[in-house]
Each structure stands twice: as C-alpha cells, then as structure tokens.
C-alpha cells in the first residue's frame, strides 16, 4: 500500500493502482477525457512522488517541469502527493522594500521573496492593510522582472489613474505587508537546444517577463539567435527595462521596438505593425521557439501566426495579461 494525498485528502492505494480511477472513486475526479493518455483532459500536478514516464508522454517540457501528469496513465508507484493543477491557492506573506518610477506611469516595486520561480513567470498580489474595502480579497497579476537568484522580487507596474490596485501599490508605505500567490505562467526559458532560434515578443508590461526569459537564456549559455520584439500602441508604452543594455550587448541578441503611432521620439523605434514586423523577421519558424506575453488578443493572434509560420505547438509559450 502507498499513501496518496490529493488536494489535502489522504488515502491508501495499492501499488499499481490507476490514479484517475482512484480519484473518481473518491469523488475527487479532476476530469476524465479520453482515458488513454492522449487528450490531457485529466491533468493533475504531482508535488512529490514517483511519476511513471508513460504519465507524461507527449507533454511539453514546461508541463513536465511543473510536475503535470495525465492521471489516466499514472499508476501509483509509491507515496504520492498531488493536487488539481489550478492556480496555486497558497498565499505567501511578503513586504514592500522599494518603490521607484521608471518612466511615465511605470512603477518599479521591490518586495521580499517568499518563494523561488523561473524568469518570465508572474505573481498575483493581494492588498492587505490600508487598502480600501474595494480591494479586500482582490488579487492582481504582475510579471516578475527580477532574476531568480536575486534576493527580492521586482515588478514593473503600469499605474493607471483609476487603477485601484496599481494606485494602492504606488502609495503603499515601505515595510507594509502584502500577500503573494504564485509563481504562475508558462513563459520561462526552456529551449530544446542552446542553438535554437528564439522569438521573444511582447506588448506593454509583457516586456518585463521577456527580459527575464532573455536573461535566463544568456545565463544558460544560449548561442542561437534571440529576437526580442517589443511593441506598444504609443511611444509612452515603451519603457527602459533595467538590465536591458546587458542583454542588448550579447552578439546573438537583436532587439526591435515597434510602435503603432509615431510620436516625438520616432527615431528611436520603428513605426508599424508588430505582426508584420515579426513575419518579415521570421517568415519561416520551423524548429524555432516563441515566447509571447501581452493582452489576450495579441497573444492569440501571434500564437496562431507563429504556428502557421511553422513553429510547433509545443514550442509556443504564451501568457495573456488581462488589463488591470
């Protein structure tokens, strides 16, 4: 017998028992799909324990990195701790360490670091003391701009005039407590080889996680070309990312700024359409990887474009940010 814990419920299973059937018998069923290790409808997240290879056959490297398994193909091979792979529900205590304006309405916020993460992932922040009633229990997602080995978490937050959470974070006193949930997100460096060409495309504050991916790639010794394409509607949407100059200095990195409408400083970026720019830059994406961050419509359109240009589905990683 092996002890199995699922969503904090504990029970005993025979070794070799099928995980999905066992969960169904106890009313803990995630979802039964094809039941044959194909459709990925019954994915669960293993936190601890032995995973039989068959339970991860056909999953992407980012799925396996998160410990996702197909329950229908998972036979119990010893003690196991797993959960429904929804958004992590634990909230971690953190503390405001620093605030600074980067440019225009972009706030750099540094807080203490309660957990490890991969560069490019994001975190949900919950307001605590001093917040108005409208912010109680409200969480907003922000991308991480720091590196995992750094001692704190850093966020680049667009502060909107009517944005309750962003205004709250812009004015919260140093030392104030915050609650964090995470880390979340699929856009983290996971090239299949160091020579694989990478496209990092983002609009708005999606650029911060892309910077994280680029830094992680260079740190890993990535030698293939890295195309960073940063887009914005207006030039005020582009902002200087701390550490970007180090990335830009690498011989295999090319950075492009694309703005839809020309502004005062139009000699520092290209005016045009980001989709067309990417298509012109990478007309054939066979064997390449794409990391995409930004508004849902942007993410969906570019994912499709990259796929049609030849990139495999398992080589496209995207995180959509809802406007806060």
């Amino acid at each position: 017998m092996a002890q199995v814990e699922f969503n904090r419920q504990i029970f005993e299973l025979e070794e070799g028992a099928n995980l999905l059937s066992a969960l169904e018998e106890r009313g803990l069923n995630p979802h039964r799909g094809c039941g044959a290790g194909v459709c990925q409808g019954c994915l669960v997240q293993v936190l601890e324990g032995t995973i039989p290879p068959r339970a991860q056959e056909g999953l992407s490297s980012q799925q396996t990195a998160q410990g996702l398994v197909m329950a229908c193909m998972c036979s119990v091979a010893g003690p196991l701790r797993a959960q429904t792979p929804s958004q992590p529900s634990v909230r971690y205590a953190s503390e405001v360490l620093r605030q600074r304006w980067l440019k225009g309405d972009i706030l750099q916020l540094c807080v203490s670091k309660p957990f490890d993460y991969q560069p490019g992932q994001f975190v949900r922040i919950f307001a605590t003391e001093g917040a108005g009633a409208e912010l109680h229990g409200v969480g907003r997602c922000y991308s991480l701009a720091s590196l995992p080995q750094e001692a704190h978490l850093e966020f680049h937050i667009r502060v909107l005039p009517n944005g309750q959470m962003s205004q709250y974070l812009a004015h919260i006193p140093l030392g104030s407590p915050l609650l964090l949930q995470g880390p979340m997100g699929r856009c983290f460096y996971q090239a299949r080889s160091l020579a694989q060409p990478l496209l990092l495309a983002a609009i708005g504050t999606g650029m911060a996680p892309m910077l994280g991916v680029a830094r992680a790639a260079l740190k890993a010794g990535h030698t293939g070309p890295i195309y960073c394409v940063m887009g914005a509607k207006e030039e005020t949407g582009l902002y200087p990312l701390p550490g970007l100059h180090q990335i830009a200095a690498a011989p295999n990195v090319r950075i492009f700024y694309i703005v839809q409408q020309a502004g005062l400083y139009s000699d520092t970026y290209e005016v045009g359409d980001i989709y067309r720019k990417i298509h012109a830059l990478l007309p054939d994406m066979r064997g390449q990887q794409a990391y995409i961050c930004g508004a849902p419509s942007f993410v969906q359109k570019l994912k499709k474009q990259c796929f049609l240009a030849g990139a495999n589905l398992t080589d496209i990683f995207a995180d959509a940010f809802l406007p806060s």
């Binding site: 094809c34 039941g35 044959a36 194909v38």
Partner: peptide, 9 residues
Amino acid sequence: TMVLGGPNH
C-alpha cells in the same frame, strides 16, 4: 487517435 484506431473514448 480515434481514426487511426488508437485507444480513445
């Protein structure tokens, strides 16, 4: 998978 005669529901 279904049309190829693989395991399916």
